[in-house]
């Protein structure tokens, strides 16, 4: 009954699995809450309540604790009115409840300037950019990777160059992309494409090469030849692994999105974040970052669920 929690490579009961999965979110939240709500943990600054007779203090102002204490000592020594304040965290670490509120209000507050976009519009822009970048990359990268993994000739013709190119950092092409493609979504899509495509070719080629050669041999003795082998054995044989690769690559595409949107961008989620940071609305910044995480995780969970239905022969579809 009382099985150990730590046993090398042994499955846990589903209750424990769920419990641990929940804890993996609760623990970081707990640490965050400790830092936010327990006044003697960290809280390196003081929010002024009464300025006292310190001439540059204002109510609501944040000062470092050391400075506050020093001014207080000075006032006490001179017998003047003491300032009062409460310990607080810097503005860039909002408390969980503030971010939670921002998660809601970020969608409901009107943009500060007329040409700025609502959060949901920024998100829609970003998702569109990701979609096109990833779609175009896959459109060429997946077939090329499959061919490279199947035919040595294609592999030798493409992979050395792809190996070289994948070390060139995608952001380095930012200026070039803007010069060639202008300032709208095209250069961003181009950067996601560059960041994803070359990795994709190699990953897909490797996945294709991992297909059990005995399956190909069996198919050949059953009468399969070139096209038949490719379409009836290679592609269905790697489909489930390919799907898993695509899930991982989609995660990379998100990373490149952030990079892409730093370049000549006036839309998208990154621009929303930079803009909010400029206004010191760090709760909105955290909210936006969390939303990216939530979108990413949700997509992945949906894709994993879909994968289990698409590939019922996979015993170990849980990934």
């Amino acid at each position: 009954m009382n099985k150990p929690w730590f046993a090398v490579r042994k499955e846990l009961s589903s209750r424990r699995r769920t419990f641990l999965a929940v804890m993996s979110f609760v623990l970081p939240l707990l640490v965050w809450s400790l830092f936010s709500y327990v006044p003697f943990i960290w809280h390196p600054q003081v929010e002024i309540i009464e300025a006292g007779e310190v001439d540059y203090f204002r109510t609501g102002m944040l000062v470092d604790r050391a400075i506050f204490e020093q001014e207080k000592e000075t006032m006490r020594a001179e017998g003047r009115e003491l300032p009062t304040g409460t310990r607080t965290n810097p503005v860039y670490l909002p408390a969980p409840h503030q971010v939670a509120t921002a998660l809601y209000t970020a969608f409901t507050t009107e943009p500060q300037r007329r040409n700025e976009k609502w959060l949901h519009e920024s998100l829609a822009d970003s998702i569109q950019v990701i979609f096109w970048g990833f779609f175009l990359s896959s459109l060429i990268g997946v077939p090329l990777g499959i061919l490279a993994g199947t035919y040595v000739a294609v592999s030798r013709l493409t992979e050395p160059f792809v190996e070289f190119f994948r070390y060139l950092p995608a952001p380095a092409f930012g200026a070039l992309a803007v010069a060639i493609l202008g300032i709208h979504d095209a250069p961003k899509i181009a950067i996601i494409f560059i960041g994803t495509f070359f990795q994709q070719v190699l990953v897909v080629a490797n996945t294709t090469r991992k297909l059990d050669p005995a399956l190909l041999e069996a198919a050949m003795t059953l009468g399969a030849r070139n096209a038949g082998l490719l379409f009836k054995v290679v592609i269905p044989g790697i489909a489930s692994d390919l799907y898993r690769d695509m899930r991982i690559l989609l995660g990379w595409a998100w990373t490149y999105l952030i990079v892409a949107e730093m370049i000549g961008a006036s839309s998208g989620i990154t621009w929303f974040i930079t803009q909010q940071a400029r206004y010191k609305n760090f709760d909105n910044v955290f909210a936006a970052i969390l939303i990216i995480g939530i979108i990413g995780l949700t997509t992945d969970l949906i894709l994993a669920w879909l994968g289990r239905r698409l590939f019922p022969w996979q015993r170990t579809a849980r990934a």
Binding site: D212, A214, L215, E217, A218, A219, T221, L222, V233, P236, G237, A239, S240, F311, W313, Q314
Partner: peptide, 14 residues
Amino acid sequence: RGMVFQGYTLFPWR
């Protein structure tokens, strides 16, 4: 020439 291998070579997706 049909062949049966020692390893299981059934197509797992079929």
